[in-house]
Structures are given as C-alpha cells and as structure tokens.
C-alpha cells in the first residue's frame, strides 16, 4: 500500500492548489467576500434597501405646488399621482431640473382611448373623432379634467333612450327622478352632453341653434359680443369651435 501514499499526497497537493491557490490568486478580492450561503444576505438586503429613489410621492409634490394640488384633489384625476404624468420627481427635488411634460393626445389616450378590455365605467373616448384632433388640454384642465362640463348621468342608461320620460321638466319637483334644472328648448339628445360615465365622454355643450352656413362664430360670440364665450376660451379661433361643439344640424 505504501507505494500509493506518495501519489496520494501529490494528488492532495494539486487539489489544494486548484481550490485554494487558484481561487486566491487570480480571482479579485471582492469575490472573496462570500462565506457559505447564506451568511452574508443581510449586507445585501441592506444594500437593496438603500438604493436611491427616482419617484417621490404625491405628498412631496403638494408641499410646494399647492394651487395645482388644490385643483387636483377635488377633480376626477385625484387618483392619478402627480408622477404618473409628470414623471419621476426626485431629480427635480435634488437639482431643480424641470420635468418635461408630455402634453400630447397620445399621453391622455394611454388611459382614455376606447378599448374593449377597459372596465365599462372607465371614461373612454374614440380618439379618432373626439374633439377633432385638438390637444386634449385645449378643453380639459388635466388637474381637474371635467371642470366646466355638464354633470354626468349618475346611473347606467342600459337601453333607455328617452331620458325625459323620467326626467320631465314639467313634472313637480317631488317626483323621484330629479327634474331637469334647465330649459329643454326642444333638445331630446340629453346624452350628447350628459354622457354616462364610460359610454360617452363627449359632453360638451352643443350649439343651441342651427348654423345655416355661418362660419364666423366670433362675430357674435367674441368677448363683448352678443353672447360671449366663457372666459377660459380666450385665444381660441373660429377653427376650433366645431371640433367640440356640434350644431343643431348634427
């Protein structure tokens, strides 16, 4: 048996060199930091826990941007965090860099384009026709997107089309469904303005008269005209009107 002892020793030496020598010499020292699994996980967990932030949170934004926050927290976008649209805020906090705001229709349509997979009661529009191709922010203030719009129908219309069979302007006030608080003036298509949430978002007031070929709206509706447009419409031109407001002709 003795003739094998020397060979055995040599083999152990080679093994020792491979497993200890080779590892210590050519493998950089940062690799030597690991003990047997899982001794060192806490160091790594702490390293993960201390990674820098990119996104802050809405309460961080509101501590400075009080005006917009006040609008936002009462509006329909109150569930949408600031950084959803404005992007991560930590760089802005640290360096003051202004985040670049995407104001395109594309950004709004990521949420509001009509898709079969979206919940039916989520407000969606047909982006091909809704508001022409005007930027959404022409009409909607993104912080309070439905401000100035007629109120929504609070219930599901199902297949009913004749709103005035219940909401009759001539009925006394104590009838259960609320009466229409404004004059009807022959309008029958209530849903053109009062879209039920989700089925129709196009709820801008229609032009209450026929156009009969007129194209220069501002002739009557300019500020100081016969019936001036609302103050927040300042700066819009004749070209814009018909993208939102449909006439009585259709």
């Amino acid at each position: 048996m003795n003739h094998l002892v020397r060979a055995g020793l040599l083999l152990s030496g080679v093994l020792f060199f491979v497993f200890v020598g080779v590892r210590v010499i050519p493998i950089p020292s940062f690799m030597a930091d690991f003990g047997f699994h899982p001794r060192k996980t806490e160091t790594n967990t702490l390293a993960w826990a201390n990674l820098p932030l990119q996104y802050a949170q809405t309460s961080t934004c509101s501590s400075c941007h009080k005006d917009n926050h006040a609008l936002w927290e009462k509006g329909d976008h109150k569930t949408v965090s600031c950084e959803n649209c404005h992007g991560p805020a930590v760089a802005h906090l640290e360096t003051g860099a202004r985040p670049v705001m995407d104001t395109s229709r594309k950004l709004c349509s990521t949420c509001h384009a009509q898709l079969a997979a979206r919940p039916y009661d989520f407000p969606q529009v047909d982006t091909a026709t809704h508001g022409g191709q005007a930027a959404c922010i022409t009409c909607h203030n993104p912080h309070t997107p439905r401000a100035g719009m007629p109120p929504r129908v609070p219930h599901d219309c199902e297949d009913r089309t004749n709103c005035q069979s219940c909401h009759n302007p001539h009925e006394p006030l104590d009838v259960v469904p609320p009466i229409i608080p404004h004059t009807v003036e022959g309008r029958t298509d209530c849903l053109s303005c009062h879209g039920p949430q989700g089925t129709r978002g196009n709820a801008l007031p229609r032009i209450p008269h026929t156009l009969e070929g007129r194209t220069n709206c501002l002739l009557c509706h300019n500020s100081g005209g016969l019936k001036p447009f609302p103050a927040d419409h300042a700066g819009r031109t004749n070209a814009n009107c018909l993208t939102c407001h449909r006439s009585k002709e259709g």
């Binding site: 590892r23 950089p28 690799m31 047997f36 699994h37 899982p38």
Partner: peptide, 12 residues
Amino acid sequence: PERALEIFLTPN
C-alpha cells in the same frame, strides 16, 4: 465565468 468557483465555495 470568473465566479464559477463559487459553486464549490458557497454552494446552496
């Protein structure tokens, strides 16, 4: 590949 020997040294 430079960490291959970890399979011997810190095996799970």
